[in-house]
Design a protein around this nucleic acid. Sequence first.
DNA 1: TTCTTTTGCGACTAAATACTCTTAAATCTT
DNA 2: AAGATTTAAGAGTATTTAGTCGCAAAAGAA
Lengths: 145, 145
Amino acid sequence: MKVLSKGTVYGLRALVYLATQKDRTGYVSIGEISEKLDISFHFLTKTFQMLTQKGILESYRGPSGGIALNKPAEQIFLFDIVKILEGDDFFDKCLLGLPGCGDFEPCPVHDFWKVAKAALKNEFEITSLAELGAKVTDERLRLSA
Amino acid sequence: MKVLSKGTVYGLRALVYLATQKDRTGYVSIGEISEKLDISFHFLTKTFQMLTQKGILESYRGPSGGIALNKPAEQIFLFDIVKILEGDDFFDKCLLGLPGCGDFEPCPVHDFWKVAKAALKNEFEITSLAELGAKVTDERLRLSA
DNA sequence: TTCTTTTGCGACTAAATACTCTTAAATCTT
DNA sequence: AAGATTTAAGAGTATTTAGTCGCAAAAGAA
């Protein structure tokens, strides 16, 4: 099941990494993250730009610059990140992609999907970066599992 | 949230359409379905070929040929269709796409995703084509909602 | 000021997905 | 047997997504 685009996945992995570095002060460079997590530097940069513009991250240029979470990891939820990177309507789309689909004019899978989607959305809403960061004991964010 | 590929969506819409035609005897031509649902004929043909090979559909060539459900719509579940069209591991994938991820060596979102995915999978497992077909009162399977 | 480090941003390339076209094979009709 | 209808299958094209490259802009250091 491919729910998230690559860009979103990279963003999530990188943010969880950041959440695990909470005892470090100052900024963490994109170069370091891209190296540690084996993610293309330029690709990651673009994803971070979006997160910076939307207030999830704070960025700073120049030596010892980089990025940092703009608020405590406890207050950043998967829901926020995914909505920014995948679009605001991410949790509202019809499973079949039919335009007018809604409670008033439901597609055949509307009721089914409404229930399933609500469960998923709830999980995204209650899960914070801090919670995820706490589970990462070592280098499990890399591809080389 | 884009969970399913276009091919799968087309397949689902077409199968639901077939389920609504249960009082008709014999085969329904792919041409008719592609026209009624506004789906590319050739694209639909490929999707149907896969469903035919996997025993969901029965096909017949020549005049008044076409396709037909190979068993009652009550016995065909979204789960079956999706697994055929998206791959057997559809409901087993790691949200972050990390290779070794599992209960033994979980990624940071493993527990979270396990719960959400189980709920989704269950919905797909219990929902049959018959159930969906019963909800389609008129031409709500077309794109022109 | 000049050089180095690091993010910002636009253009370019590659790969995956979606779609189209052509021809073959099966089956019915005349 | 010849032609029409309909699925099967593969090759080719287009669009979208993913990934790369190069350079400008900001900021610190020498």
